[in-house]
C-alpha cells in the first residue's frame, strides 16, 4: 500500500496501472493457456470439454485481453514516457511485428472454432492452434523485451542504436517469460474450471488442478532464476506485495490441490481467490521495482478530466453489468451454442 503514496500525485496513476495490468495479464494468461491446451488436445487426438470451452472462448478472451492492454498502454506512457518510447523506437520493426502477429493469431482462433477445421486431421488442427499459440508467445516475449530495454541504462540504448540492432538480448527476458507462462497456466486453469463448471467431469477438473499446480511451480522456479541472476531487486515498498504474492501463491496451490483431490467447489473458490490476488500482487511488485524511475512531470499534477473518467468508469461498469444480467435473464442457464 505504501507503494502508492508519497509520489507527488503519481500514486493514483500507479494504482490504476497495477490494477489494469493485472487484468490484462490474467486475460492474457487465459489466452496462452487455452491455446496451449487446445494445441495439446489436437496433438493427442479426440476432444474434451475443456478444449471445447477453450476454443469457444478464445476469440473473446483475446479481444478482452487486448482491450484490457490498452489501459496500461496509456498509463505506462503517462508514467514512464521517455523510457517506453525509447524502447519501442529502438526495437522498431521488431516491436511493430506484434501487430501482424496478433491479427494472424486472432483469425487463427476464429478459424479454430469453425466446423470445417473441427473435421480436419490431428496435425492440421494442431497446426492452427499451435500457430496461434506461437504468435501469442512471440507477443509476450516482445513485451518483456520492450520492458527490459526500457529499464536499461541510456548507454545500452546508445549502443543498441549505434549497432542498428533490432533485438535486445538479455537472459532475464527468458526468465520473465517462464514466470509469465507459469502464471498463465494458473490463470487458465481457474478460467477453464469456471467455464466448464456444469459439464466438467472429475478427470477434467483433476487435470486442470495439475495444470494449475504445475504453472505455480514453474512460475516460482522462474522467480528463483531471476533472483539468482541478480536482476531482481525489489525495493522496500514492494516487499509487502511480495509477501502477499507468496501467501496468494500458497492459497492458489491449496485450491488446485483441492481440485486434484475432487473437492471442486472448495478448490475452485480457493484457486480463484488465490490467483486473482497473486496477479495483482505480482503486478504491484513489478511496478515497485521501477517506481523509482517514474518521470513525474509537474504538468501532470491536476491534469483535467479525472472526474469525467471516474464518471464514465462507473457508467461503463454499470452498462456492462446491465448487459450481462439482461442476457443471463433471457438465456437461463443453458450452455452457449455456437457463435
Amino acid at each position: 500500500m505504501s507503494l502508492f503514496t508519497g509520489l507527488d500525485g503519481a500514486g493514483g496513476y500507479l494504482l490504476l496501472l497495477v490494477v489494469t495490468f493485472a487484468m490484462h495479464a490474467l486475460l492474457i494468461g487465459f489466452v496462452l493457456g487455452a491455446a496451449a491446451w487446445a494445441t495439446m488436445r489436437a496433438v493427442r487426438g479426440g476432444d474434451d470439454v475443456v478444449a471445447a470451452a477453450a476454443r469457444d472462448w478464445l476469440p473473446f478472451a483475446l479481444g478482452a485481453a487486448i482491450t484490457a492492454g490498452v489501459a496500461p498502454l496509456l498509463l505506462v506512457q503517462v508514467l514512464y514516457q521517455h523510457r517506453m518510447y525509447t524502447a519501442t523506437l529502438l526495437l522498431s520493426h521488431r516491436f511493430m511485428a506484434i501487430v501482424p502477429a496478433l491479427i494472424a493469431g486472432f483469425y487463427l482462433l476464429y478459424l479454430g472454432k469453425t466446423a470445417r477445421v473441427a473435421a480436419w486431421g490431428r496435425a492440421r488442427r494442431a497446426a492452427v492452434s499451435g500457430a496461434a499459440l506461437a504468435a501469442f508467445v512471440f507477443v509476450a516475449w516482445t513485451w518483456i523485451e520492450e520492458h527490459t530495454l526500457a529499464a536499461a541504462a541510456p548507454e545500452v540504448w546508445v549502443a543498441h542504436y549505434r549497432d542498428g540492432r533490432l533485438v535486445h538480448g538479455d537472459p532475464v527476458i527468458a526468465q520473465r517469460l517462464v514466470v509469465w507462462l507459469g502464471l498463465a497456466a494458473a490463470a487458465f486453469a481457474v478460467g477453464a474450471a469456471w467455464l466448464t463448471r456444469r459439464r466438467a467431469e472429475a478427470t477434467d477438473l483433476r487435470r486442470l488442478g495439475v495444470v494449475g499446480l504445475g504453472g505455480l511451480l514453474v512460475a516460482a522456479g522462474g522467480v528463483i532464476a531471476i533472483d539468482r541472476g541478480g536482476s531482481a531487486s525489489v525495493p522496500a515498498p514492494g516487499m509487502t506485495w511480495l509477501a502477499l504474492a507468496a501467501v496468494a501463491h500458497a492459497v492458489a496451490a491449496l485450491g488446485f490441490a483441492a481440485l486434484v483431490t475432487d473437492r471442486a467447489r472448495l478448490g475452485r473458490g480457493l484457486a480463484t481467490g488465490g490467483v486473482i490476488v497473486l496477479f495483482v500482487a505480482v503486478s504491484a511488485v513489478r511496478e515497485a521495482s521501477r517506481a523509482a524511475r517514474i518521470e513525474w512531470r509537474s504538468t501532470l499534477v491536476g491534469a483535467q478530466g479525472v472526474f469525467l473518467f471516474l464518471g464514465f468508469l462507473a457508467i461503463s461498469l454499470a452498462a456492462i453489468v446491465w448487459c450481462a444480467r439482461m442476457v443471463r435473464a433471457h438465456l437461463g442457464s443453458e450452455p452457449p451454442a455456437r457463435t
Binding site: T67, A303, G305, L308, F309
Partner: peptide, 19 residues
C-alpha cells in the same frame, strides 16, 4: 498523452463497453 490522458481513459471506457 500528457494533456489528454483522462479523455483517452474515458474513451477506453466507451471502447470496453463497445467490445
Amino acid at each position: 498523452v500528457d494533456e489528454f490522458h483522462w479523455i483517452w481513459a474515458t474513451e477506453w471506457c466507451c471502447f470496453t463497453v463497445e467490445i
